[in-house]
Nucleic acid binder design. Sequence first.
DNA 1: GAAATTCGTACCGAAACAGTCCTGTTTTAG
DNA 2: CTAAAACAGGACTGTTTCGGTACGAATTTC
Lengths: 161, 161
Amino acid sequence: MIRITKQTDYGIVLLTHLAANPERQLNAPELAAETRLPLPMVSKILKLLAREGLLASHRGVKGGYGLARHAEEISMAEIIAALEGPIAITECVSVEGDCSHEPLCPVRSNWQRINTAVRAALEGIALSEMTHAKPGGPQGLVTLGSGGRAAFTPAAAFQEV
Amino acid sequence: MIRITKQTDYGIVLLTHLAANPERQLNAPELAAETRLPLPMVSKILKLLAREGLLASHRGVKGGYGLARHAEEISMAEIIAALEGPIAITECVSVEGDCSHEPLCPVRSNWQRINTAVRAALEGIALSEMTHAKPGGPQGLVTLGSGGRAAFTPAAAFQEV
DNA sequence: GAAATTCGTACCGAAACAGTCCTGTTTTAG
DNA sequence: CTAAAACAGGACTGTTTCGGTACGAATTTC
């Protein structure tokens, strides 16, 4: 469904919250409380984001997390890539002869194109843009798809295209 | 991972194959053979595409499938939407007070934006463009992500962004 | 040195996905 | 008019991934 995982969903909420409070040093319980997200997940995601270099972590008693860079310099593409795994694009079978019953499989090369288009779209949106509500305003297009999710789903993904 | 399902993957291969042979009327076993895809899946997907109005089906002995419209008039966005389910975009919890601990959750409205960007990218690519190899050529950026998939994976998704 | 906090990893249940099969219904061919 | 070919629509199952949890280790502050 061209959907992102809940992890990424949560991650963006957390990053947005941090971007909105750049002066504060927030730890996992604080972030969980302020975003109304389950603490264990928050903790897990923060670890991931820190390892990927998007967050700077400080251990110890007065530890916590902060953005590693300014919110303007972090793109949605980066965040999603960090939370979803390594940067892999089109993966055909590398074994020749399975896919290429035609001398040159035309489908494959064009996946690159789609990826590039989608990626460009995501790279064009910075984290800082998520902190202030969009001028256009949200037109209530929300047609919830596959039955409401459990408990909290603060930001909740794009499920279809 | 912003990944599409295998169904959609297969579906695009099938549609591309049909777009490349607009004069022919192909049935499920033929398509399965020519695309090297498993027949049961092919059959399943063709049914879905026909129901969604992207394919025109003809029953009976000399039956088969053909594109319902010209390949230029079918966008990637349409295909994906048809195969992945209904058009749902950003789904926040509709219950006020959970998500909106801030008077107006800033994250939510901006998901619309991301969706719009991605959708626009996909709407800009027509099925007809998938039939001929891209001029620029595929630069081999293929870093296969989570271990090769089983058996056949002809076109195989964009896994990360 | 003790307390608080991040870090790493391993684990489990539930849901979604990939794939298969079976039983109809429609159409052409002989 | 009968039979075969092909689509139509579910129901079913195994596997993977995701969401969520738990615990011990490392690190910093007081």
